[in-house]
Write a protein that binds this DNA or RNA. Structure first.
Lengths: 144, 144
DNA sequence: CTTCTATGCTTTAGTCAATCAAGTATCTAC
DNA sequence: GTAGATACTTGATTGACTAAAGCATAGAAG
C-alpha cells in the first residue's frame, strides 16, 4: 500500500507537498523492486551490501529485529543473491556478502528505480542545491 | 523496517537528501502509529475517513486490492474505530465511517506525528514556499 | 581449565499487510 | 426474469515484522 498515504487534515501546502513526495517515492521504490522480482525489504537489504555486513549490524541500521534480517537473508540466499559466511574472528557472527548475481540484480533494480534520478533531473543545478539544503534543514529537528 | 532504506551507489547530494528525508518521514509515521496502537496501514486508512468512503474507493486511492481493505477495516471495526454501513442506494456497497473513538484516535495519532509539522517549523515562510515549489517540480516527471 | 555471562544469530509462533482466485449478493439492462 | 456486471467478502498463500526461547561461541573470573 506504500503507506503513509493520505494528507492529514489541517496541513500547510508544504506539508502536503512533502507528503505527496514521500508517497510517490515509496510507490516508485515498490514498483521498481517488484519489476526485478524483489520485495522492497529485499531490495533494501541487498542495497546495503556494498561490503560485507554482520546480521546485527544490518538489523541496527534498518531499525528492526535480527530475526527479521535472518528471514530476509534466508530468502535472498535461497535465490543465490547473497552468501552467508562465518565471521573470520568470531565464529558466532556472519558476514553477508552479495553474490555476483546479487550485484547484477541490484544494479538492475537501481537502474529502474528512476524516481530520485528523474526527480533531480527536473531541477537545475542551483535548484538541486537549494532542495538539498532545505531538506537537510527540515530534517534538522528530527533525531538520527 | 520503513523501507526504502540505504542510499544508492552513485547518487548526487540531492538524491541522498531526498532519500534521507523519505526514510525519516516513513519511520516517524510508523513510530507515531505504533504509539497509538495502530499499524501504519490502519492509520493510513483511518486518516482517509474524513467522510464516508466505499471499500473499492479506498482500494482505488490506496492502490491496493479491495480484499486488503476488507481485512484492515475488519480489524478497525473490531476495535470500534470504524463502522461499516450498507450503502443507502446500492446495498452491495458499504459506507465506511469513523466512530467517535476513531476520530479521537486519529486525532491523537496526527498530533504525535510531528514529523511534517516540525520539519516545516524549521523553515521560514519563504523557505516553505521554495520547498513546496521544488518538490512539486521534482515530482512533475512522475505519473499521478 | 572450568564455569558464568554476554553476544550473535536462528528458530518458532504469532500478527498483520498484501495479493490472487473464487464466491455471494445485489444491481442493471435487455 | 434472466444475464452479466459490480461491490464486497472469503480463503489460501507469501512475506515482513516482533517477541520469546534456544544454541553456539566468546570473553572474563575464579
Amino acid at each position: 500500500m506504500a503507506v503513509p498515504s493520505g494528507p492529514v487534515a489541517a496541513s500547510t501546502e508544504a506539508e502536503v507537498a512533502m507528503f505527496d513526495f514521500v508517497d510517490a517515492y515509496d510507490r516508485a521504490y515498490e514498483v521498481a523492486a517488484e519489476q526485478h522480482g524483489l520485495t522492497p525489504a529485499q531490495a533494501c537489504v541487498l542495497g546495503r551490501l556494498t561490503r560485507p555486513w554482520g546480521m546485527s549490524e544490518l538489523a541496527g541500521v534498518l531499525g528492526c529485529d535480527a530475526s527479521n534480517i535472518t528471514q530476509i537473508i534466508v530468502r535472498l540466499e535461497a535465490r543465490d543473491l547473497v552468501r552467508r559466511e562465518t565471521g573470520p574472528h568470531d565464529r558466532r557472527s556472519r558476514q553477508i556478502v552479495r553474490t555476483p548475481e546479487g550485484e547484477a540484480r541490484y544494479a538492475e533494480f537501481e537502474g529502474s528505480f528512476a524516481f530520485a534520478r528523474s526527480a533531480v533531473s527536473q531541477l537545475s543545478l542551483a535548484e538541486q542545491e537549494q532542495l538539498t539544503v532545505l531538506l537537510r534543514k527540515a530534517l534538522s529537528s528530527s533525531p538520527r
